[in-house]
Amino acid sequence: MSIPDFTGIEPESSWTGLKSDEAWPRQPALSIRGLSKRFGDLVAVDSIDLDVPVGSFYGLVGPNGAGKTTTLSMSTGLMRPDSGTIRIQGVDVWEHPLEAKRLVGVLADGVRLFDRLTGEQLVTYSGLLSGMDRPTVAVRVADLLRLLDLEVAAGTLVVDYSAGMTKKIALACALVHAPRLLVLDEPFESVDPVSAANIRDILAGYVKSGGTVIVSSHAMDLVQRMCDHVAVIAAGRVLAAGTIDEVRAGASLEDRFVELVGGRHHSEGPEWLRIS
Rank of each mutant, 00 (worst) to 15 (best):
G40Q: 09
E151K: 14
S217L: 05
P53G: 08
G205C: 00
S47N: 13
R200F: 00
A153M: 10
R112T: 13
G131L: 10
V139E: 15
P25Q: 07
I275T: 14
G55F: 02
V141S: 09
D92Q: 08
V152Q: 13
V52M: 04
G119L: 06
A174W: 02
D245E: 15
A154R: 15
G262C: 09
R134C: 06
G105E: 04
K167E: 14
D46F: 04
Q121V: 06
F257E: 09
M1C: 02
L181C: 08
T243A: 13
S73N: 15
V123F: 09
A231C: 04
I275V: 15
T212H: 03
I3R: 02
L157R: 14
F6G: 04
K168H: 08
R225I: 02
I48C: 01
G250I: 03
V54Y: 06
K208R: 12
P4C: 11
T70Y: 08
F188R: 11
E12N: 13
G67P: 08
A163G: 07
A196P: 10
A174K: 04
E99W: 14
G210S: 03
F114P: 05
D255K: 11
T118P: 03
N64T: 08
G84Y: 01
G110D: 12
D115H: 07
L181A: 07
M79H: 12
F57L: 12
C173D: 06
S73R: 15
G105D: 02
I202D: 04
L144G: 05
W94T: 13
F114W: 13
H265P: 02
I86D: 00
V207Q: 01
E99S: 14
E99V: 13
S36G: 02
H266I: 07
L147I: 13
V238G: 04
G263I: 05
